[in-house]
């Protein structure tokens, strides 16, 4: 009995063996698994930022001086680059979320989930670059 190790070849009649197949116990997965891993990592990262972000915004209730000092931490160049990573995490999580909804709602979409994952990565890159073009001059510009 032949057992396919591939989980994403639902559209194919006969699963083709992968060229870079390795023998062992390490499951390296395909696009479906890596999108799942990416969704969890970006989700956790955004969650912890959200906790901090609600607290830093809450300092508007203390005084203008305290809020300006706290929010000033977001304006140094290292944090400015971190903001690009944050926007990237949000964009990837958002677009992959749409992919998950489509796959859940329409069984036929399961056949193109792999292509949709690369679509998510491609559109995310475009959005991250567009954001960076606007954001980087703000981070490093004189103000």
């Amino acid at each position: 009995m032949r057992v396919s190790t591939s989980t994403s070849n639902l559209a194919d009649e006969t699963p083709k063996p992968s060229k870079n197949r390795i023998v062992g116990t390490l499951y390296r997965g395909n696009e479906g698994m890596w999108s799942w891993v990416l969704h969890r990592i970006t989700g956790i990262a955004i969650y912890f930022f959200l906790l901090v972000h609600v607290l830093d915004t809450a300092t508007v209730r203390i005084s203008p001086e305290v809020y300006n000092a706290i929010i000033g931490a977001y304006k140094n160049p290292i944090m400015g680059l971190g903001e690009i990573a944050l926007v990237g995490a949000v964009v990837l999580h958002a677009l992959n979320g749409i992919r998950i909804i489509l796959v859940d709602m329409f069984p036929a979409v399961t056949r193109v989930q792999r292509q949709l994952f690369w679509g998510v990565v491609g559109i995310s890159l475009v959005l991250i670059i567009a954001f960076s073009i606007r954001h980087i001059p703000n981070v490093f510009g004189a103000h």
Partner: peptide, 16 residues
Amino acid sequence: LMWTPGGIQAIDFGFV
């Protein structure tokens, strides 16, 4: 971060 002139640098008590 994109529409407001200055983006991140413009966020302060007055803006919020």
